[in-house]
Design a protein around this nucleic acid. Sequence first.
RNA 1: GGCCUUGUGGUCAAGCGGUUAAGACGGAGCCCUCUCAAGGCUCAAUCCCGGGUUCGAUUCCCGGCAGGGUCACCA
Length: 554
Amino acid sequence: MNLKKLASALIPDEGLLSIDKYEHIYPPRDIAPKAEVTRLAPSPTGFIHLGNLYSALADERSAHTTDGIFYLRIEDTDEKRKVDGAVESVIRSLKYFGINFDEGAEIQSPLNIYGPYYQRRRAEIYRAFVKDMIERGYAYPCFCTEDELNAVREKQTGEKKTTGYYGEYAVCRNLSESEIYKNLGEGKPFVIRLKSQGSIENKIIFRDAIKGEVTVTENDQDVVILKSDGIPTYHFAHAIDDHFMRTTLVIRGEEWLSSLPVHLELHKALGFKPPRYAHTSSLMKMDGGTKRKLSKRKDPELSLDYYRKAGYFPKAVVKYLMTLLNSDFEEWSLKNPTADYRDFKFRIEKMSRSGALFDLDKLNDVSRTEISMLSAVECFEFLKGWVTEFGTPADKAHFQNEEYIIKVLELVMGVGGKKRRKDIERAEQGVRLIDYFFDDTFAPEYSYRFDAQTVNTVLGEFLKTYDPADDNSAWFAKVKAIAPTVGFAGEMSDYKKEPEKYKGNVSDIAEILRIAVTGMPNSPDLCTIMRILGKERTAERLKRGMSKIKKKQV
RNA sequence: GGCCUUGUGGUCAAGCGGUUAAGACGGAGCCCUCUCAAGGCUCAAUCCCGGGUUCGAUUCCCGGCAGGGUCACCA
């Protein structure tokens, strides 16, 4: 059979370069020997999820801890999946979490010499190589229809044989020259398949960067490499692209492990040295009694938007993911609480071989810690960012008053001091925590645990002596002084000795004042809250707390 | 079902033939305290099951069992 002629009949020559040209167009990269070139290669569906972030972080860290390159390639070989604006969305989402690309699709960079970074725009490169494979007898056309293929698959399933296009089932593999041209003459659509040289009798010991030695069976499937629309399948495109974009480390989900034999054979047939592969385990979730992969449909927490809307601190999400990526990151982070996570020596080899269960409690803890370490200004910026996008109109108005909010944050969050509030894991919680500092959102419920008489006496007595100039101890002394007027213990020690002698104690006095002033039984230091509110508003709230009671009584 | 892969407390996990089997999150409790938060201290909780190999197995081998992945002209 004249393969050269067949190749030309199948794939027209026009516009195609000879394959050896590409080695010069895309020369090896001028980087350090140990530098890794990694990539994120999403399909442009626009949906970027936690798993993508997880993987992207591994890519980005691998590249940037070795002075390498991290680039973005868009795998748009499947027309059906395309969504407008998806690429920008991917870039934006990752940027929000502090992950940036060095080169690639829609990235402005002088490094962009390995493009185009959209697979559809690389069609002629693929075609040149497919054509070459046909000429060398490594590929052939297949005219089987979808129905025929399905019928074979059913037959194979029924006979409990391995499904697929191989051996005796690869009918088009042995088509005669005249049959091929006859089909072509009739205008039958065709795909190009790999003419596999492998056998499932052979086992390959493969060294995965994460999983270590993995035993896989050699490929014997004549997989499709060029679809009937002239666009390659993922398998083929990735082999070409990762070779010519000079990728050194391919990090991808473990769902790809089973197609690794195909990729290995493809590289061999193409004459390429395969990159190193690292197959990551997927993020799991507890559902009922068992673990399962995080699902786009069922689990809102898979979406990155979920974390933005919920107001998680973006760096906290990244740090949490880092703990999953390299388990010793957490220990390092504990020792270096203020260090940038980028200073940690990430290594792909240290990644877990088994799947990690996504643990919201742990994320919350990391987020709490991160937020607690913010300065008042940083905290303000973070909360304001969330408020601008997701806050209520009242929130937005409040955040215009930067000076006041920062003063409040310093108290409420304990920022700048030793007593850090560490129970805020999401922006919204922080925003709600300062509601009572604004009169329009001060919505007290007055859930006093004492009778109206006692409450009114406490509030009235305090009002008499209240002086905003008091420091904490003077303030507290006044609180204590109220105790005897309502039969409470002024000293905690007295109360503990003989609790039956008193109706309550100082902390109960403080509680009554607190409820009147903040509307809640719990709050940060009351004395400081009063000082921030100012004399007028404090007095007003104390009076309002009383009148409320009276109304209830009537 | 075939093939690949994983199995240490509730969760993430150190450990790589001899350990009191780290640490973190979560849980329980105590202390401190004007409440909350924070902080300090304490406690409970783990080597999937059987067989080997070995003086000795959580660690090595085999077999179960249980998870996970995959079997497209999708990536």
